[in-house]
Design a protein around this nucleic acid. Structure first.
Lengths: 333, 333
DNA sequence: CTGAAAGCGCTTACAG
DNA sequence: CTGAAAGCGCTTACAG
């Protein structure tokens, strides 16, 4: 829709040129304090707000960033999105959000660019390296979360998944568990690889032996966790502790134990990963490797905001350390 | 950032004027098929995409809509957001999202307008009628969810909360329960009022007596539900079924029963409202009044899209019927 | 201290 | 069928 009040309307009413109005609202350039005040009063009265698109055409600043997530209904993302938006709003930015679950990730990114976003925060994990690289060649400030990427236009922000998995195993081993299984996912993502690596390393650190029979794969969902846990406990009835790839699988594992008549944590200890809201809401509450998702979102925005302000600043890798939250689902062996 | 490839670049390379390029990409106006093809090939080669902001300045169509939610981390919203975006993307639209939990709702709406959104979908529940009305006077296509509003620019989309609450009570009464309590919230929202009305009406329909002691108020959260359920069961130990204002309170009620040594559903039946993901993930799984949130989001976008296309079409009220999903938490009295 | 001119990247009439 | 001109609502130099 066409704007109701334009800078020309204000200028006319104030009896000045539009440049003068521009000076007043942007507090930029020489202007007499008196006319400035007079204009500002008029601006408020008329409810005038500059058209950001018109502004953007001149300044190359749309005050919009793009935020791309795989699927906002995945409980991992809402908190990150919220954090990005909180930080954005504090800095006069608005967020254009897209889900990529049904679309080509690169298409989505390109589309966002046509809207004139100043910066981009994305969880692009399906698109291949070359496509992402080609895109980054053309686009400026860009931050990818949870993907390793070496490109001069790309800053990365990653949870240290390996360290988190190590901590989980350390936690269980510290409780006296000697036979610790893992429920993993069949998706070949970086998170998966790193969490399995951390699991194995954690076992090693605790002086425990890894065996293939201890690692079961399934969908990274509640149903997947349920199924995988049953399989694991069938294969290895001696298991007393389970590390799940994520909280959903962890909840599934708790359900499996219940079905099998095993008590959590008395018979089996369970720990998940991500610490989504669900973890603290079920009973027994699920211990988890906590990822500070809110902090993650804020950091992402802060970094992209800096990159927008200083496009020449160097790109880097931001790491985030997870930590253990013990709840009811893990206890002494 | 300034755009890499502009319409002028394409025009120059094609040896035509930019108007001709415009005709080719928009498939609008007379143009010879041959030059059209030639230009389209070039467009693809050069990776040219029209700047939507520049387009919007002429056409008054930014291809962005605004979507305003109280708080995306509230599990009620992600699915709606996802649905709006799915529908938007299918129609060439992108979504500008804002949370209002920390801000003035009207401020957020006004800010969105400066970005040139073509339409607006909002859960504006805190702002008073007058502010909303003033805003609507100036802005065009606008849809408010879950708030009654009579304004010629505003279309409303509402869940029939009263009917849903009625259904919940009917469900419990149908299972043979005679003493049915309700956990409500202290927030004076329309949803709250309607759900309490429905609860009372449902009792009447079932030939049961309402009594003030059966209605307990608390925060609409898990903790609130836990607290309220304990209070209710202390006041009225004869209660055998509980209708909770929302699922979070329902889950809290289950927890309360567990703490008190009561079995769900053997001793107490519980039903929630909204049917968020959590409801089906806990154990016992929570029966709930299902609101089709995905459908809600799609309908909202469809309606706003129509309003954008035909700004003169009349505004209306769209209603949505909830339905009962029985799970483990409710059973025979 | 203030205004006239030009331009951001497009599209919409209007000529030819 | 194609191009020159004007304009969307702003800002950025540049005059004065």
């Amino acid at each position: 829709m066409r704007q109701k009040v334009t800078i020309d309307d204000v200028a006319r009413k104030a009896g000045v040129s539009k440049q003068t109005v521009s000076r007043a609202i942007n507090d930029k350039g020489d202007i007499s304090p008196i006319t400035r005040e007079r204009i500002l009063v008029l601006v408020k009265e008329m409810g005038y707000r500059p058209n950001r698109m018109a502004q953007a055409m001149n300044t190359s600043r749309s005050h919009m960033i793009g935020l791309v997530v795989p699927d906002i209904t995945n409980p991992f993302f809402p908190e990150i999105v919220r954090a990005v938006q909180d930080a954005a709003m504090e800095n006069g930015y608005t967020t254009l959000i897209c889900n990529t679950v049904n679309s080509s990730e690169i298409e989505v990114l390109n589309d966002l660019v046509t809207h004139g976003i100043d910066g981009l925060i994305t969880f692009t994990h399906r698109a291949d390296d070359e496509s992402v690289s080609d895109f980054a060649d053309r686009f400026g400030p860009m931050l990818i979360i949870n993907r390793e990427f070496a490109h001069q236009n790309i800053t990365t922000l990653m949870v240290d998944n390996k360290a988190g998995a190590c901590l989980a195993v350390e936690h269980l081993a510290g409780l006296g568990h000697k036979t610790i299984g893992m429920l993993s996912t069949d998706l070949a993502t970086l998170s998966q690889t790193r969490r399995v690596q951390g699991y194995k390393e954690g076992l090693g650190d605790a002086g425990l032996q890894f065996d293939e029979s201890l690692l079961v794969q399934a969908d990274p969902t509640l149903a997947g966790g349920l199924e995988a846990a049953k399989e694991l406990l069938k294969r290895r009835p001696d298991v007393t502790a389970i590390f799940a790839y994520n909280d959903l699988m962890g909840v599934g594992a708790i359900r499996a134990c219940k079905d099998l008549g095993l008590k959590v944590p008395e018979d089996i200890s369970i720990i998940g990963f991500d610490d989504i809201q669900l973890a603290s809401m079920i009973s027994p509450a699920l211990s988890s490797v906590h990822v500070d998702k809110y902090e993650m979102g804020r950091k992402a925005f802060e970094r992209i905001y800096n990159l927008i302000q200083e496009p020449t600043s160097t790109r880097d890798m931001i790491g985030m350390k997870p930590k253990i939250i013990q709840r009811e689902s893990s206890g002494p062996a």
